[in-house]
Design a protein around this nucleic acid. Structure first.
Lengths: 291, 291
DNA sequence: TCAAAATTGCAATATATACTTCATTTTTAC
DNA sequence: GTAAAAATGAAGTATATATTGCAATTTTGA
């Protein structure tokens, strides 16, 4: 995965022995390589507050023959960051099925990006905390979201006790939530079209004083109304399939965050978790090699 | 999602009324904007096989004052494509939990990218074809992969009849496959650590002459040994959680491809599928608006 | 605190890049 | 098939950009 990040490394390695002005240039390039790559020596100097000459000399210090050579490497770096994904986006050739396939994956990548850029991390942190602190955790989801609930439940159960998942049959939901109280957390997962039973379940949970975490696709989602915390993951897809890719990734992050937090806690599940980590390695190793 | 793709649109709109040489330039820029953005007029001309003058005139035709102005817009376009994802990759700041969260999503984006870049599309096409042509489709998956199987089964069932999914209990698998024959397709989904029951099931299916499609993480996967087609989706994750994000996206693509194919086929399920598309729109619309 | 060394900015110079003219070739329309 | 119109490339010119010498300033180390 690590390609030719050589220039950045080079700058970092040289950083100590640079002059003050050159350090400013180095810092700017590291923080804004995407802009710097397109600037002339003069503009870059102006931006940093240093003369054109200093910029040129900076390039020399880094063993470049001149500024244009350094610039070229910056540009090459940017180019390698523009992967196939973006190229497809640009391409006009939507004719064949291959691109159609790639467009689906690209749409999912976009969903992930948007999710990543728009997450409110304080909410995420609060969600992690509430999962670790709750006496019982209940996961409620219906229709296609059940797959997400199963996944989340599977891993949370490895990490901590008292995690329950609503099964596919609708009548179970309220039975499951019958004893929910203020020390519990109810996680509701729902994406369009939102199942009304899920909403009702969250409503009930809230009325019983339980904490409610909603995982859905928008702050306008009906699930958000009944939630103490709402985590947003995009699920747009230009077809009849609801893409649960971004929500799934969000759950990955959530599970890992909870895992890390639990790992640092002296608790009964600690040894168990350690076990799982260990186990995972073994599995992975065997799995990859037994052809 | 559509930002300032104006330049590309501009080129597309103008395309018809361009001269032959200019069309070549236009085509090159659309296909290689990432390279073009860094070229001088002379180099671009050389690459396309046209004179520097023609390149400059091309910029003029597109209403730019000169070549540098056009180049600037190309560069701006590239900049907007470098999203947070890549910037995090560059950033040295791995200290806080927020970045840790983003790293999980980033890892999933990478998984998707690798999956997208490495898929053998002929296999994908063959897989789609075999799904549409099979008399019965059986989906076999165990452990955490069951969530994927449920998802795939849910949607394939909307599109066509005779789709069966192995449930969570292991004994069911062979009962389910009891009547499998050469006109059937068995889809096996398995990621490390590969469940041996899944492998045995595929082995059995093959011995009965059924077609076998494996969805797994590597050509070296044991599932691949028994498969007629193997679709690869990366599931690497630097933690105890197996990320099923890329596999899920692959299934999205598969489902949509099958859907499109079925849509164009005169068959009993056609009307049903149309119905689903229609339904989806209604759901989506209602879903988004009923606050 | 002071002098040597290093760094810097200005301005002159050199180079790279873009633009334009004009003669030649290609395309278009009858 | 032919002439007018359009497009093109070569070469010269103009402009933008980079480099460097030098004097002024800042930093370093005793």
């Amino acid at each position: 995965m690590s390609e030719n990040y050589d220039l950045m490394k080079k700058i970092q390695l040289s950083f100590q022995r640079l002059s003050k002005g050159q350090k400013m240039i180095a810092q700017y390039i590291m923080d804004n390589y995407d802009k710097a790559a397109f600037m002339t020596a003069a503009k870059l100097g102006e931006k940093v507050g240093v003369s054109e000459s200093t910029v040129v000399r900076f390039a020399n210090v880094l063993d470049f023959e001149g500024y244009p050579q350094m610039q070229k490497e910056l540009q090459e770096m940017i180019r390698t960051r523009l992967t196939t994904v973006q190229r497809i986006e640009m391409s006009n050739d939507y004719s064949n099925e291959e691109n159609a396939f790639k467009k689906v994956l690209k749409a999912d990548i976009d969903n992930l990006r948007i999710t990543m850029d728009s997450i409110d991390f304080r909410v995420f942190e609060a969600a992690v905390k509430s999962i670790t602190e709750a006496k019982h955790v209940y996961i409620v989801a219906l229709r296609s979201s059940t797959t997400l609930a199963d996944f989340l439940g599977f891993y949370l159960n490895l990490i901590r006790d008292n995690v329950r998942v609503s099964s596919h049959s609708v009548t179970d939901v309220f039975e499951m939530l019958f004893r929910v109280d203020k020390d519990d957390l109810v996680i509701g997962i729902g994406f369009p079209r939102y199942a009304s039973k899920t909403i009702e379940a969250l409503d009930y949970a809230k009325s019983q004083g339980a904490k409610v975490l909603a995982i859905t696709d928008s702050v306008l989602s009906p699930l958000a109304n009944y939630a103490d915390f709402t985590l947003i993951a995009k699920s747009n897809m230009e077809s009849f399939v609801d893409s649960l890719v971004a929500p799934l990734s969000l759950l990955n992050a959530l599970i890992i965050a909870v895992g890390i937090k639990e790992k640092n806690t002296v608790s009964s599940s600690f040894a168990k978790l350690e076990n799982i980590w260990e186990k995972y390695k073994i599995y992975s190793y065997k799995g990859k090699n037994n052809k």
